[in-house]
């Protein structure tokens, strides 16, 4: 398959250690695009750039070449703080609280739409 070049005899599939230096150390930016007016910005990808201006210019060139957006945000990846599944309310527990959902209440048909 194209992007899975077969291993040669004696070649290891493990990742090789590199001698690469820290490089330029350009920070990573997360890119968010508003596809059209009236909807929220959505995460679309990331890129490395030395400063916000270059990050925006590069994001524009990479992610909106075909009119994919009307607004663009870049945010330093290091500024994103996150909760992951294990930090969130337990899924089972959340689903047990059925009284949070409108459909669990019986309203007589005669009342009509509510």
């Amino acid at each position: 398959m194209t992007y899975d070049v077969p291993l040669l005899p004696g070649e290891s599939p493990e990742i090789e250690e590199t001698t690469a230096t820290a490089g330029e150390g350009w920070p990573l930016w997360e890119v968010f695009v508003r596809a059209r007016r009236g909807i929220s910005h959505v995460h679309i990808g990331s890129l490395h750039a030395p400063d916000p201006e270059s990050a925006l210019q590069n994001a524009r060139d990479v992610y909106t070449r075909r009119g994919e957006g009307v607004s663009l945000w870049v945010v330093p990846s290091s500024e994103i703080h996150a909760f992951e599944p294990e930090d969130l309310v337990d899924y089972v527990e959340a689903n047990e609280k059925v009284y949070r959902h409108a459909t669990t209440y019986d309203i007589p048909d005669e009342v009509g739409h509510m």
């Binding site: 194209t2 992007y3 070049v5 990742i15 090789e16 590199t18 001698t19 690469a20 230096t21 490089g23 330029e24 990573l28 990808g45 990331s46 890129l47 490395h48």
Partner: peptide, 25 residues
């Protein structure tokens, strides 16, 4: 970018390519 989410840096990968340790199609 997708590869970097797995904990490697782009410049490392690029270095491996330049050293002939990484292949391409």
């Amino acid at each position: 970018s997708a590869a970097e989410t797995l904990g490697v840096r782009r410049d490392e990968l690029q270095e491996l390519l330049h050293q002939g340790k990484h292949k391409y199609s």
